[in-house]
Structure formats: structure tokens, C-alpha cells
């Protein structure tokens, strides 16, 4: 039972980090209808900036610069690349993001090389004991930070003018333009927010028990894709639910691996995608996605 609870808490924590990534993914999709395959490289960029700067600046300022840096990279991708293709077919734009991802990831992996970079977080490998349950401080910090950020984001989305502009542009870009919404700014802010959220996620993907930021970190970030897709690509609620489901699934599949040997090794990495497939079989639009309704 202790193992079960520990795995559940760990899963929820890592799931909330996936939710952060998936949220950024969904925000870009809602604002621009572009599936952003460059998301993992935004995350890597944010993590890299923090890792490089933390020695000189200290952890918190380095994290702030990392978050801002990832936001700038995100809006630069939108401003310099995506804007040129606006009005093209959405699948063309999605493929453009694959190109951007290859460029960014190649450069970042060259910079990182074979290093495993520490981000200099204050939690280290300390743990908290709650009765019989042992949980790492980093996991608690991840959950709290993700919960705060997601709440702040959802409140802003619901109540600020930025949120209204975002939702209006997502629902009907042309009418939003008629209301004076500047669509270029909406999509740039979406990319910036996505970048910032990804940078925070980068921190919590690389702290204890993970060794640190390395080339493979962007692979871990890829697990946010099944999270966003199984929740429904255009739903913020879906991103949260999807993130948690993926996190918990992965945690259990890894934790109980020894009892699942008939499935072969490494089922933990595979489990999120299996869940995604099963959900999509039952609900093709994802758990909370808008069903495509078209009158013919």
C-alpha cells in the first residue's frame, strides 16, 4: 500500500509537469490551430539557459532568465518563422514547426554535448517522510509550482482582456479581427506563454531523481504529446487531465514493472502512448476536445 501511495503521489507530481507542457501545447493550438512539434526544443532551450547561468547568477535569477529566455525563443519562432507562413494550410505550418524543432534541438544538443547539467535547484535530493511514505522534496515543489502556474493561467484565461482576446481568436479569428483583436499579438503571446511554461517544466523534468539536463530531456518532454492529445488538443482542462493521466500511468507502469514482465521491459515509457490509443479509440476527439461537427 505504501508503494502504491508513493507511486500515485510521484505520478501526480510528474503528471502536473506534463500538464504544464501540454498546456503550452494546447494554448498554441487554440490560438493558431498549429500543432507545435517544436515544443520539446523550447523546453530544452529554457532548461539550458537556466543550467548555464545558475552558477553565476544563483538559482532563482537563472530560472527567471531561463523562463524569459524560453518565452523569447517562443515568440521569436512565431515572429520570424510562423508569421511568414500565416494563411498557409495548418498541416504546412505543423511541418514547419518540425523543421524549427530539428534546428533548435540540433544546436542545443551540440551545446549540451554529452554533459549532464545540473540546474542548481535548492531542493537537492532531500526527502519528506509522511508516516510510512517517503517523497522527494522536488516532487512536492513540482506539484505546487505546477498547480500555482496552472491556476494563474486559467484565471488569466478566464478573466483578463488577454484571455478574452485569446478565446475570441481561437473561436473565430476573422470576427476577432473585426473586433480589433490583433491576431499577430495573440499568437505571439501564446508562443511566449508556452515557452515560459515549458521552461518551468524543464526544471522539474531535470531535478532529482533525474540526474540533470541532458540531450535526452527533450525525449521526456515528448510525453506531453500523448497528454495533450488524449485530453483533447483544444481543451485546457483536457491538458490538465491528460497530463495527470499520463504521469500516473507512467509511474505505475514503471513502479510495478517487475509484475508486468510479460509485457517486456520498458513498459513505463510505452504506457502513456497505449493509454492515448485506448482513449482515442473510444473518444476520437480526446476526453475534453471539441468534436468536429460539420454539416454536409
Amino acid at each position: 500500500m505504501t508503494t502504491f501511495t508513493e507511486l500515485l503521489l510521484g505520478g501526480l507530481s510528474i503528471g502536473s509537469v506534463y500538464a504544464l507542457i501540454a498546456l503550452g501545447f494546447v494554448v498554441i493550438f487554440k490560438a493558431t490551430e498549429v500543432v507545435n512539434f517544436a515544443h520539446a526544443s523550447l523546453l530544452l532551450a529554457g532548461g539550458y539557459i537556466t543550467a548555464v547561468l545558475h552558477d553565476d547568477l544563483g538559482f532563482w535569477p537563472a530560472l527567471a532568465v531561463g523562463i524569459a529566455g524560453a518565452a523569447v525563443v517562443g515568440s521569436a519562432v512565431d515572429f520570424l518563422v510562423m508569421r511568414r507562413y500565416r494563411g498557409s494550410d495548418h498541416s504546412v505550418l505543423a511541418i514547419v514547426t518540425i523543421g524549427v524543432d530539428i534546428l533548435l534541438t540540433t544546436e542545443l544538443t551540440r551545446l549540451i554535448g554529452t554533459d549532464v547539467m545540473a540546474l542548481g535547484d535548492p531542493w537537492g535530493d532531500r526527502v519528506v517522510n509522511l508516516g510510512e511514505i517517503t517523497i522527494a522534496q522536488t516532487r512536492i515543489a513540482a506539484f505546487v509550482a505546477a498547480a500555482l502556474l496552472i491556476t494563474a493561467f486559467l484565471l488569466a484565461f478566464r478573466y483578463t482582456s488577454w484571455g478574452v482576446a485569446m478565446r475570441a481568436a481561437a473561436e473565430n479569428p476573422q470576427t476577432a479581427a473585426l473586433m480589433g483583436v490583433r491576431l499577430g499579438r495573440v499568437s505571439m503571446s501564446a508562443w511566449a506563454v508556452a515557452g515560459a511554461l515549458a521552461a518551468v517544466a524543464a526544471l522539474f523534468l531535470t531535478v532529482f531523481p533525474t540526474p540533470g539536463l541532458e540531450r535526452a530531456t527533450s525525449l521526456a518532454a515528448l510525453k506531453a504529446f500523448p497528454a495533450a492529445i488524449l485530453g483533447g488538443l483544444d481543451s485546457t482542462t483536457g491538458a490538465l487531465a491528460g497530463g495527470l493521466i499520463v504521469g500516473v500511468t507512467e509511474s505505475f507502469a514503471t513502479g510495478y514493472q517487475s509484475e508486468l514482465t510479460f509485457l517486456g521491459g520498458g513498459i513505463g515509457d510505452l504506457a502513456p502512448y497505449l493509454v492515448m490509443l485506448l482513449v482515442l479509440l473510444a473518444r476520437p476527439a480526446g476526453l475534453f476536445g471539441t468534436k468536429e461537427l460539420a454539416r454536409v
Binding site: S161, V164, A165, R167, A168, E171, N172, M179
Partner: peptide, 12 residues
């Protein structure tokens, strides 16, 4: 904006 409230539509 069908998925938004009347108040949010006016705010838009």
C-alpha cells in the same frame, strides 16, 4: 462567439 458568455462577447 458561441462558446463564450454573452458578457464576454460584449467584452470582446
Amino acid at each position: 462567439f458561441a462558446r463564450m458568455t454573452v458578457a464576454d462577447n460584449l467584452r470582446a
